[in-house]
């Protein structure tokens, strides 16, 4: 019973965090059908940025957030203009984007390995609270609560952006139909760049907390994070940013339960979940109801 309570509470906290992990990927896919398999590596870079900001200048993860978001936003815009328009001209843009960003992910991981070495690093837990929190007779690291809280705040901001700003409306118009949005005068290209930047910025933010959730960071965590992100947004239906919240919670609770009851098989979870969900609803992923033939 105690174990179950522990698993559920930590699962919900993880879940909010994982929702944020998937959010940027979902936004980018939703707006331009680009499959950013370098997503996890951007998160990894976010994690290292936060690590170095603290190590070099004692800037803690919370203070680091705006700095990191803005720099990754700019980085995202640059990548967008360098790569995406060309991809969108390919015969099969989704597959082309997959392969190209696979290359990008390799580049990001390689540079991180060259620059930081293949060692594990971590930020002290005291940076986010320190003393454990007692809840329902269990004790949890305080950093998990801060992580959950800040993730939730970031998600709410994205929600407000999409639902209460003019740019957000236009973004949703592009998501539902690119051609139609263009024909009613939405500047599709500029908005795609903007949202790509936001998506990359959003990927970097959870990076600041990876060290607290996973214990440490290293240049090779990108692939796993990418698979997790896909599991999250596929559960919540790819391309619908707020579906990531549902996906994050499902994934978070499932992970916590696995870690509690079947720890040695927990690493299988994102992979198997991803495959099963994709198979269960290939239509939901593709946005069209049937696959002919």
């Amino acid at each position: 019973m105690d174990l179950l309570v522990y698993a559920l509470v930590s699962g919900v906290l993880y879940g909010v965090f994982f929702a944020l992990v998937g959010l940027g990927l979902s936004l980018i896919f939703g707006v331009m059908r680009v499959v950013n398999v370098a997503h996890g590596d951007v998160i990894m870079w976010g994690a290292f940025s936060s690590f170095w900001l603290y190590t070099l200048w004692h800037i803690g993860p919370v203070l680091a957030l705006p700095i990191i978001f803005v720099s990754f936003f700019v980085f995202g815009c640059i990548i967008y203009y360098g790569i995406v328009p060309r991809i969108l001209q390919a015969e099969d843009p989704e597959l082309a984007s997959l392969i190209v960003f696979f290359g990008v992910s390799q580049v990001l991981e390689a540079i991180a390995t060259i620059a930081f070495g293949n060692t594990q690093r971590s930020l002290p837990d005291s940076l986010l609270g320190g003393r454990p929190v007692h809840l329902f007779g269990q004790s949890f690291p305080q950093s998990w609560f801060w992580t959950g809280l800040i993730s939730a705040a970031a998600i709410v901001l994205v929600y407000l952006y999409l639902s209460h700003t003019r740019t957000g409306y236009a973004t949703r118009a592009i998501m539902s139909n690119r051609q139609e949005a263009a024909s009613v005068g939405v500047n599709v290209s500029a908005l795609s760049a903007l949202n790509f930047g936001i998506g990359i910025g959003l990927a970097a933010i959870p990076g600041c907390f990876v060290s607290f959730i996973a214990g440490n960071i290293s240049p090779d965590i990108g692939l796993n994070l990418t698979v997790i992100s896909f599991a999250v947004i596929v559960v919540g239906s790819l391309g619908k940013p707020l579906g990531a919240v549902l996906g994050g919670l499902v994934y978070g609770v499932a992970t916590a339960l696995m870690q509690t009851y079947l720890p040695s098989w927990a690493a299988l979870l994102p992979n198997v979940l991803l495959i099963l969900i994709m198979l269960a609803r290939p239509g939901g992923l593709l946005g069209s109801e049937v696959r002919r033939a």
């Binding site: 499959v35 989704e94 599991a231 299988l268 992979n271 991803l274």
Partner: peptide
């Protein structure tokens, strides 16, 4: 069953499948 998936989805799912095979064998 993965063959039912199109382009990008097949690529991602096959990656997840390889990871899963590794997790099982190295467990």
């Amino acid at each position: 069953p993965l063959l039912r998936l199109e382009g990008a989805y097949f690529g991602i799912a096959s990656l997840a499948a390889a990871q899963a095979a590794y997790e099982i064998i190295s467990n």
